[in-house]
Design a protein around this nucleic acid. Sequence first.
RNA 1: GCGGAGUUAGUCUAGCCCGGCAUGACGUCAGCUUCCCAAGCUGAAGGCCGCGGGUUCAAUUCCCGCACUCCGCACCA
Length: 489
Amino acid sequence: MISMVNYEQVIQLALERGFYFPSCGIYPDAPAGFWEYGPSGVSLKNKFIELWRRELVRRDRMWEIDGSQIMSQSVFLASGHLSSFADPVVKCQKCGSIFRADKMIAEVCSVVIPESAELEAFDRTIAEKNIRCPKCKGALDGAKKFNMMFRVGIGPQDEPAYLRPETCQSIFVDFPRLYKTMRGRLPIGVAQIGKSFRNEISPRQSLLRLREFYQAEIEVFCNPGRLDEIDGFSEVEGTVLNIMADDTIRPMTCREAYERRTVPNKLVAYYLGLLAEFYKKTGIDTSRSRFRKLGEKEKAFYASVAFDFEVETATGWLELVACNYRSDYDLTSHGKVSKEKFEVLDDNAKVLPHVFELSMGIDRSLYTILEHSLREDKENERVVLSLKPYLAPVHVGVLSLVKKDGLAEKTEEIFSRMRTRYDAFLDHSGAIGRRYRRLDEVGAPFAVTIDHQTLQDGTVTVRSRDSMAQERVSTADLDSYISRSVAFP
RNA sequence: GCGGAGUUAGUCUAGCCCGGCAUGACGUCAGCUUCCCAAGCUGAAGGCCGCGGGUUCAAUUCCCGCACUCCGCACCA
């Protein structure tokens, strides 16, 4: 009857209905890992971002900024990306093949050299063991670092700079100014939505692994001595988190998670709670989600505690948000390199804030919303995108039952009253059932149909997407009906 | 990056072995008809058959290279 969908069906819908599609598609040299959002995708994305603003930024009274995508070399010297965000590679002088140095050496002669070792270590082993190109036996060049950041040259001097590999660096860099000018008090969240860039070796699966992608990041600056003093904690203490630690998933409330020390402090428990409540409202099936506590080896080098928020999709468990307690790693290193002071006054004492981060992948979240919302309704021979009404690219379709007898004109009159307030879609042509099905596929929760009775008594039918049920509504009440139905929660 | 499979209209697809004007369906658009759930009829638009090279009188078809997509592996701040 109603069946779940797979990855292919989501891609198909995305391509056919203008959600997203490959970038530069008409040219043969289109690079992998770049996708664009079409009209339906942009509309969904904008609404998703609005929900994020409501549920996280405004709810927690965070500051939102919008930083540069290109940042100076010094930023990444301080952040560690210049040295650490890179893989060691060697190139064959003869056939030009490129290999991961550590992997190739381990494979050929079983000598294990850590990825982060000095480049000389790879060169030395290659020379000692006389390692040649595994493909053509040619001589190998010296090892180099392949940095995953995109380098750009600025001005005629080609000054080195980089496309940011994560949005949060501008938040750290801007923190001292923000704190002074915005009258800050700890704890304070600073949020940012924007693009980040990573030169992935092998981008895959459309929106799931991109070279240019959207992040919504929140950095919460806090006093490490007062992590259990969180005003809003009572608001989320009953919120259930599916926490996965030691390979088992256990649902527990934020309060339980904190009291059992599964989550280290109230501040982290509070933000995981906010995040869980946000995702519930996106329409993602959160019964198939988990906060996976990362083990020592999996964590990023700056994280002392880390949870990945993951959701089960047709492609397996997918990481949507990385939640890292970054301690004072970032502010300390930016302080050292820039000589800027990052200490602030809290509770009459000077303190270097710690940072807890929620780093959200927007593209992956949108994919998951589509996958979890898409249904094949075999009984009614239709494909339905059951998006939350407030996220739907089209709020309401406005249809004339037939074009003649003045119905088209009446329909346009009703449409023009709605079009600046809602994402409304006007359609006169074709069989009415076909037009309903088309709207079902872009997730429009309602369709308003103007028929002969409309001309007599001023009522229209409102057909709802999920139930296909219809009711008559007076045109005088239409605005409040739709506005109530598509309002954010 | 490695191994495998693919790439023909918006989408899916036939043709490829065996070289000779590019198939069909769905969708889209217009008209007629019906008037509340993908009905029917008529018509139309839409393709350098992924890109580049080679063989050939002639390449969607055979050969080589590349790009991209998908699946596994690896990678994944």
